[in-house]
């Protein structure tokens, strides 16, 4: 028989985040983003909207970008997750992070973690995207400050750095 957790009961979730295994008991309704922020204290991932539109909460789950506000924590059981906090290696910034800084691709910084994680996925899928492909790949991430041009430049720059 399958496993049933009744209302009010918690379910064990075991998940590897940025290389570390965590085990928590959570309510099945808990969203992955709240799990990351409130249970694990990884507040780098942000919440920007209620409707799966803005992409501020984008993380990489099992190699693919997802909006962590639209995934239940229990759905991530057993998953391998990468958040913005796990991108820099040994305090060396990832080329995407460096490119965002070098191209003035952020202003208030709130959309930045999601924007960077989505860029990470986009460049994994397509290491040399055209401008149109960048726009198509990142339109699920809303920025209210930059007008996007510097973000597009940063993505191109990062792609170049990662290829070389």
């Amino acid at each position: 028989m399958g496993v049933l957790a009744n209302k009010g009961e918690k379910v064990k979730v075991r998940v590897r985040v940025n290389g570390v295994w965590y085990e928590r008991y959570v309510s099945p309704r808990m969203l992955l983003v709240d799990f990351l922020r409130d249970e694990l204290g990884l507040t780098g991932t942000k919440v920007g909207c209620d409707t799966t539109t803005c992409g501020a909460c984008t993380v990489i789950m099992n190699g693919r970008s997802v909006k962590s506000c639209t995934v239940l924590a229990v759905q991530a059981n057993g998953a391998d997750i990468l958040t913005i906090e796990g991108l820099a290696q040994d305090s060396k910034l990832h080329p995407i992070q460096q490119a965002f800084m070098d191209n003035f691709a952020l202003q208030c910084g709130y959309c930045t973690p999601g924007m960077i994680m989505q860029t990470y996925f986009l460049l994994k899928e397509n290491p040399n995207p055209t401008e149109e492909e960048i726009r198509d790949g990142l339109h699920g991430n809303i920025c209210r400050c930059t007008g996007y041009q510097n973000i597009i430049n940063a993505v191109k720059d990062a792609a170049g750095r990662m290829r070389s």
Partner: peptide, 17 residues
Amino acid sequence: HVYPPDFAYYIPNSIYE
């Protein structure tokens, strides 16, 4: 709201379940 209501959660072992 942006938080789901409380619900029970069932993980089936098969389509039939």
